[in-house]
Design a protein around this nucleic acid. Structure first.
Length: 425
RNA sequence: GGAGAGGUGGCUGAGUGGCCGAAAGCAACGGUUUGCUAAACCGUAGACUGCGUUUUAGCGGUCCUCGGGUUCGAAUCCCGACCUCUCCGCCA
């Protein structure tokens, strides 16, 4: 959420941002409601002031003096009730409209229409050349008895999977690897609730309602399942004022993530790439405003470090305005090489990191105390350390051997009893 | 699940209808003292918001978990929700 006074005073900028992000926002409607809302507030406040001062006088009056003033205040009360109910309605539509206005865009954000216009920033690693026909992770998973999609479909439907045997060990190893790396960087590991209230979902910018929601809601409750621990960690400090010295506060969130993937059937959704449920180690940072840009680069550098350690080639992509959600001020993806993707192999998104500036913090009401004793909104940032499902795709496909085994990269071996190959004969 | 107690500012905690945006203490900020640090002393201070001011200056409104209600007037009384604690029961 942006500050209304900012929206009002920078209408051209806001219009521009809305256009660049291809979001539907009724800015004129918002400005109009805001106008009405503020004039209604003035009327209500004036009437309340009158009531308050009369009530105060009543306290000092003798019993028989009171009569007239009391009835006067009674009539103000009736008038006030009408105005207040009008204001309540205006407030509701104002809230609904203002939350649709997306975050500002960093001047560094490239412009474009869709993900095709994202800008490659750099590449790392050498794309593997196989002397044999490489398999994709679905075939590998089946052949090595690592993943079972068919039986998962019986249990929970499509886009679910059983992870089995060495794949489970691999998942645990990947988590441990990522967590240890983050702990060494000073992140606090945190395991979060996997359900969160709709207030928290809204605050982080995840809309639990509507046909296109990514969020599973729990029936007969105010709860929904989190799509990422970004949501629960964002709620962690909501409504709090943090000491400035505690910032940046760096969290390594560990949770399962649940996504409906509504409307995504068939589209780049083979195997583990797009699933309803996966484990993820997530970075989340609460930062001072002046730190956030550097923290964003820092998160990106850790994402790269994770994949460098896994010896997986990747590229870093700067997300263009037309492909960015409403919350991020600036965003990068890391796309790992996936030999089984498409005909020749292709890059596929494995991580994503956003600087949300104060957009989430304003709605979640997370502040810090400035040196002069005032409060100000923090900045929030998030990024994927490793999403296990997609990490597995890259790992299995890149490190497959001719005889159908999987080579374990050096950095991961200590978490797998030192083994060099996944399947031990 | 049953019974009871409770939720007040950054924190601890007083306040049972008007003198309360709220005592006191701690923390914070400014200053004095000090070789430095600490301590001591003095002072300043809540958040959000509307109008105004345009480099400061005010004047209002709202906020004592949240939502309703009673009242001219609610932190205070009533109802509901949520959360916390204690005891009992049940259970990974």
């Amino acid at each position: 959420m942006l500050e209304m006074s900012y929206i009002r005073e920078h209408q051209d900028e806001i219009r521009n941002v809305i256009e660049r992000r291809h979001v539907k926002v009724d800015l004129d409607g918002l400005l109009q409601v805001d106008e009405q809302r503020r004039s209604s507030i003035q009327q209500v406040d004036m009437l309340r002031a009158k009531r308050n001062s009369l009530s105060e006088q009543i306290a000092k009056m003798s019993a028989d003096e009171r009569q007239e003033t009391v009835s006067q205040v009674k009539s103000i009360k009736v008038e006030l009730e009408n105005l207040e109910s009008g204001l309540t309605e205006l407030e509701a539509s104002y809230q609904a409209l203002v939350r649709d206005v997306p975050n500002l865009l960093s001047p560094e954000v490239p412009s474009g229409k869709s993900d095709a216009d994202n800008v490659e920033v750099r590449r790392w690693g050498t794309i593997p050349k196989f002397s044999f026909a490489p398999k994709d992770h679905v075939a590998l998973g089946e052949a090595l008895e690592l993943i079972d999609f068919d039986r998962a479909a019986k249990v929970a439907g499509s886009k679910f999977y059983f992870l089995k045997n060495e794949a489970v060990l691999l998942e645990l190893a990947l988590k441990q690897y990522a967590i240890n790396l983050l702990v060494a960087e000073g992140f606090s590991p945190i395991k979060t609730p996997v359900l969160a209230t709709k207030t928290v979902l809204d605050g982080t910018g995840y809309n639990p309602r509507g046909a296109e929601t990514q969020i599973y809601s729990i029936e007969n409750s105010d709860l929904a399942m989190i799509a990422t621990s970004e949501i629960s960690i964002g709620g962690y400090f909501s409504g709090e004022v943090l000491p400035a010295a505690s910032l940046p506060a760096k969290f390594a969130g560990i949770s399962e993530c649940y996504r409906t993937e509504a409307g995504n059937y068939g589209r780049f959704s083979k195997g583990l790439y797009r699933v309803h449920h996966f484990d993820k180690v997530e970075m989340f940072i609460y930062a001072l405003p002046e730190q956030s840009e550097a923290m964003h680069q820092y998160i990106l550098s850790i994402e790269e470090k994770v994949f460098q350690g896994l010896e997986i080639p990747y590229r870093v992509v700067a997300i263009c305005d037309g492909d960015m959600g409403a919350v991020a001020y600036r965003k990068y993806d890391v796309e790992a090489w996936m030999p089984g993707r498409g005909e020749q192999g292709d890059f596929g998104e494995v991580t994503s990191c956003s600087n949300c500036t104060d957009y989430q913090a304003r709605r979640l009401n997370v502040k810090y105390r400035t040196p002069d004793g005032k409060t100000a909104l923090v900045h929030t940032l998030n990024g994927t350390a490793i999403a296990i499902s997609r990490g597995l795709i890259a790992l299995l496909e890149n490190h497959q051997t001719e005889d159908g085994n999987i080579r374990i990269p050096q950095a991961l071996r200590q978490y797998l009893g030192g083994r060099e190959l996944l399947i031990q004969k």
